[in-house]
Design a protein around this nucleic acid. Structure first.
Lengths: 157, 157
DNA sequence: TGACAGTCATCAATGCATTGATGATGATGG
DNA sequence: CCATCATCATCAATGCATTGATGACTGTCA
């Protein structure tokens, strides 16, 4: 076997892998958002949780986890940190004593608004790169990709 | 102030935030890849590292980190795990005694090929969702987004 | 009433990723 | 020759996220 072929190509050349471009773009997005929300003392997942919480006060941790697309365990840790820092409050539901209602505190709302101002700049910068029509095309591509990948996951599972 | 406006909208409505769609698609991609490489006993970042390593034997940990778009520290932990499991080997460079040359072991190569077979299926499933022309458009959108976001990060930093 | 399914919270183990700081090494230039 | 700079590895702290397992509670259905 020729040495030149020993380090042979894997199943598909990297340049053809759309997933690589998708992931690279997302890494850049997360890096920018991290920079944006950092001055507010928040991480990106914390910002996401507060953002949902602002529109859904009293939501359960599990429901919040679904909204943020993470597992309940991950959200539990995140909420524990936010509670310790006084950005959210959790209290047992009046009837369903098993669920902990979660709400923003004033400090939490303040941090969210500070973070959202800069996070919005990132989204605006992203939007400004595209015309309205392009944004629609881009969004459609992303949603089709998401759907295709969900089917791929179903097949593999 | 009317109660209906108390939970007021943040800076930009969620439906307008392209970043949300981008991130959701990436989450789905990562979930599918996770399922794909799991039977090989690998995580997605481990698969990525082995993939680069297969084409760049003897690369340094820091260079590998750059290729995989993570910090050297993150790559260090990852390589520590892979070394302990015998999937890669690390040895001091002959001249630059400070750098550790990293190489796949046979077991590492076997795991990579097993993982790559299924990971390629995911990429194929993604590619099959789009025509050739659409793939090029999609890729162009992603690269423009990446560029715009890098500039956004520069502005914020 | 009593079994069952669904939802919620939580503990534990593992792994990824970041910032910040430290120290070793090799190349560059005064 | 020595100072400086860049690169590399590594330690430590913090936080995100996953799977797996456990226990508590609600409501339903037999």
């Amino acid at each position: 076997m020729p040495l030149a072929l020993y380090h042979r190509r894997m199943g598909m050349p990297p340049a053809d892998r759309l997933g690589i471009d998708l992931h690279r773009a997302d890494l850049e997005l997360m890096a920018a958002k991290r920079l944006a929300v950092d001055p507010a003392g928040l991480t990106v997942p914390q910002y996401a949780a507060l953002y949902v919480l602002a529109d859904s006060p009293g939501i359960s941790g599990a429901a919040l986890a679904r909204s943020c697309q993470v597992t309940p365990q991950a959200m539990g840790v995140l909420l524990k940190h936010l509670t310790e820092r006084g950005l959210v409050e959790r209290a047992p539901h009046r009837w369903h004593r098993n669920v902990l209602e979660t709400r923003l505190t004033d400090r939490g709302r303040a941090a969210l608004e500070l973070a959202d101002e800069r996070a919005t700049e990132v989204e605006q910068c992203l939007a400004d790169e595209f015309t309205e029509a392009e944004q629609e095309q881009f969004r459609a591509f992303l949603n089709r990709a998401e759907r295709a990948l969900r089917h791929a996951a179903d097949d593999l599972g």
